[in-house]
Amino acid sequence: MTLGAGVRRARARRYLMCRPTYFDVRYAINPWMDPRQPVNTDRACAQWETLRALYRDLGHTVELIDPLPSLPDMVYAANGGLVVGGRALGVRFRHPERSGEQEPYLRRLARLASGGVYRPTLVNEGEGDFLPVGGMILAGTGFRSERAAHAEVARILCRPVHSLTLVDPRFYHLDTALCVFDDDLVAYLPAAFDDAGRGLIAALFPAAIRVSEADAVAFGLNAVSDGRHVVLAAAAEGFAAELRHRGFEPIGIEFDELRRGGGGIKCATLEIRS
Rank of each mutant, 00 (worst) to 15 (best):
R228I: 07
R260K: 15
F239G: 00
G220E: 07
A223F: 08
F219I: 06
V186D: 00
D168G: 11
L189I: 09
F205R: 05
A214F: 08
E257K: 00
D226F: 11
V224R: 08
F239C: 00
L200T: 15
L221A: 07
L174H: 05
L185D: 07
A241M: 09
D215Q: 02
G227I: 09
I251Y: 01
E242K: 13
G264A: 11
G264S: 15
R170N: 14
E213N: 07
A234R: 15
G261S: 05
V211M: 00
A202Y: 07
A234S: 15
A236K: 08
P169Y: 01
A187H: 03
G227K: 10
E237M: 10
D215H: 03
H229S: 07
D182F: 07
V231A: 04
E254R: 07
L185M: 09
A234F: 11
H173R: 07
A196M: 09
I265D: 04
L204Y: 14
F248Q: 02
A234H: 15
F248R: 02
R228Q: 14
I253Q: 04
A202S: 14
R170V: 05
R246P: 12
G264I: 01
G227A: 09
I253P: 06
L243F: 09
I251V: 08
H173F: 12
V231R: 04
G227S: 10
A223K: 06
C179M: 14
P169K: 00
A223R: 03
H229A: 08
A236L: 10
L221W: 06
